[in-house]
């Protein structure tokens, strides 16, 4: 398989879903490094950003009050400045996450300091709200996904891990 950028033999093969479409990218080692695709890292944030239409102006104008990181910097480097940035740039994040991940909500390990019940209950209430909205807007695919998530939380399958 050839590299999508140059003609060298590809050594890195990535598939991701962007805006509901599956994209396969084959890269050679040199190009994968140039594009910042590294051994330990997930792929495509920069690409996803480039391919995303900027939804509103505030995404390029906002600033994180905790660290001073700006939306323009975020767009440019594809990484956040500090943990608080996720609140500062929350708008438009969901679309981005949908393109990158299986879901937009964390369902994995929870720090034990956060009481489990509050966490789950809060999540379920929030999910139910989102489910109602999805049904109202006739977004049935989202609704099905949310329903699955709720079911999963109410009946947690014991993890083999």
């Amino acid at each position: 398989m050839k590299c999508d950028v140059c003609e060298s033999e590809a050594t890195v093969f990535l598939t991701q879903i962007i805006n509901g479409q599956m994209t396969t990218v084959n890269l050679c080692d040199a190009c994968s490094q140039a594009k910042g695709v590294t051994d330990e890292m997930g792929f495509g944030l920069a690409e996803a950003f480039l391919n995303q239409p900027t939804p509103t102006n505030d995404v390029t104008e906002g600033v994180c009050e905790a660290c001073g990181f700006t939306a323009a910097q975020l767009k440019k480097i594809g990484r956040m400045g500090c943990p608080e940035c996720y609140s500062a740039f929350r708008d438009g994040l969901d679309g981005l996450l949908k393109a990158m991940h299986k879901g937009t909500r964390h369902v994995g390990k929870t720090p034990s300091k956060i009481t489990q019940s509050r966490h789950v209950q809060g999540n379920i209430n929030h999910l139910r709200e989102e489910l109602a909205n999805a049904v109202r807007d006739e977004r049935y695919e989202d609704a099905a996904r949310l329903k699955n998530e709720i079911d999963r939380m109410l009946n947690p399958t014991p993890d083999a891990v």
Binding site: G44, L45, G78, R79, Y86, L96, H106, V107, K109, G122
Partner: peptide
């Protein structure tokens, strides 16, 4: 730890969010 109930463990790059 930096942790968010919805987004999970907060990471520099959103491609690592969640777990």
């Amino acid at each position: 730890y930096a942790y968010d109930e919805k987004l999970g463990y907060l990471t520099a790059c959103p491609t690592n969010l969640g777990t």
